[in-house]
Structures are given as C-alpha cells and as structure tokens.
Simulated assay, not measured.
Amino acid sequence: MTEDFFFKKKDEPEIIPLHEMFKAYCEMDVISFEQNVDLLPLSQSDKWLISARILDMVTLTTTDTGLAFFTFRKRALSFEEYLQYLKDLAESKNIDFEEMKYKMQTCGKPKKAA
C-alpha cells in the first residue's frame, strides 16, 4: 500500500509547466526553431488548443482565436504576450482561465514528425 504513495496513478495526467509546453510548441514552428527564439505563431497555438480540447469549433472557434491573436499585430507571440492572449480569449468566450491552463499543461507535448 505504501508503494502507491510513490507512484503516480494511471488516471492522473502529468502536469507540465506551461512555459515548458510553450517552448515545445515554439520548436514546432520552423521560423522560431531556425531563429532559435521562443515565439509562438497562431497556427501552433491552435494546434495546442486543439490538443488540449479547448478549441472545439463550438465553444471556441478558429475565428475566435484568430481575432484575439491579431489584436497583437504580430506573426508570433512571446510567452508573456501569449499569457495575455489566453486571458483575453478566456474572458471573451467566458472560459475559466485556470481550467484552460490546466488542460494545456496536461495534454502532452507535441510529437515531432519523423
């Protein structure tokens, strides 16, 4: 019974720090990767939100994400800008921001194409 204390239960998702997840998705963007910068474009953000089951085309659509993203008038966002983007998006669509971050931390890192 004490060994259960040391092992994570199978139904408990791994919680990866948001900044680490952000960096992993930045690396999936060719331009950010080649320039060795941590900037996330809308395309990678949408992939992350789909993976986290937030972008579902009902409650939240690609039109919603695009409109919120383009208020920054940039190709890609830094981590701090991205957090503001998520807050704005959550507020505009009445989505719980903390739950949103949790889903984004537990959806797993993106897999690189072989």
Rank of each mutant, 00 (worst) to 15 (best):
E3H: 09
D4W: 07
F7R: 10
K9L: 12
D11L: 09
L18A: 12
F22Q: 03
F22H: 02
F22R: 01
Y25F: 15
M28G: 01
S32H: 06
V37W: 07
D38N: 15
D38A: 13
L42M: 13
S43N: 14
K47W: 08
W48G: 01
W48K: 03
I50V: 15
I50T: 15
S51W: 05
S51Y: 02
S51V: 04
A52G: 09
R53Y: 11
R53H: 12
I54F: 06
I54C: 02
L55H: 05
D56A: 07
D56T: 04
T59Q: 10
T61Y: 09
T61H: 05
T63Q: 10
D64F: 03
D64W: 02
G66P: 02
L67K: 15
A68M: 10
A68S: 12
A68D: 03
F70S: 12
T71P: 04
T71W: 06
T71H: 13
K74S: 11
R75Q: 14
A76C: 07
S78Y: 09
S78Q: 14
E80H: 11
E81V: 08
E81A: 10
L83V: 11
L83G: 01
Q84M: 07
Q84C: 07
Q84R: 08
Y85H: 15
D88L: 11
E91K: 14
S92V: 10
S92T: 10
K93L: 04
N94G: 08
E98C: 10
Y102H: 08
K103A: 04
K103H: 05
M104S: 01
M104E: 01
M104F: 02
Q105R: 05
K109E: 04
K111Q: 06
A114W: 06
